[in-house]
């Protein structure tokens, strides 16, 4: 399993559109990808669950990736967060 932490910089937090694009991105990989904040966890492929975390600007999330292509998937997720959130 691989993981990284990231502090959200987008002014409205993880809002609908990036969460949707994130879900699409996450579906490309076999690995299970989860996002957690404050003990709550959501699968990255599930848009509404991710939105349900209500991650605001300045809050830190932990992204965990585990599965056959975790190396690749984790790199892609990191890049996605840095570019979009």
């Amino acid at each position: 399993m691989k993981e990284f932490r990231y502090t959200i910089k987008d002014a409205v937090g993880i809002h609908a559109r990036p969460a949707g694009v994130l879900a699409k991105e996450a579906k490309k990989y076999e690995s299970k990808i989860t996002i957690s904040r404050d003990g709550k966890t959501a699968e990255a492929t599930k848009l509404m669950a991710v939105m349900g975390l209500a991650v605001k600007c300045g809050q830190e999330v932990c992204v965990q990736v585990s599965g056959a292509d975790e190396e690749q998937a984790c790199g892609a997720m990191k890049k996605f967060f840095e570019e979009n959130l």
Binding site: A16, R17, A19, G20, V21, A23, K24, T45, K46, L47, M48, A49
Partner: peptide
């Protein structure tokens, strides 16, 4: 227009 794209994404949501 992005709102309609978001609606499309919501409609793909597995939990829903």
């Amino acid at each position: 227009a992005a709102i309609f794209e978001v609606h499309q994404m919501m409609l793909e949501d597995e939990d829903y």
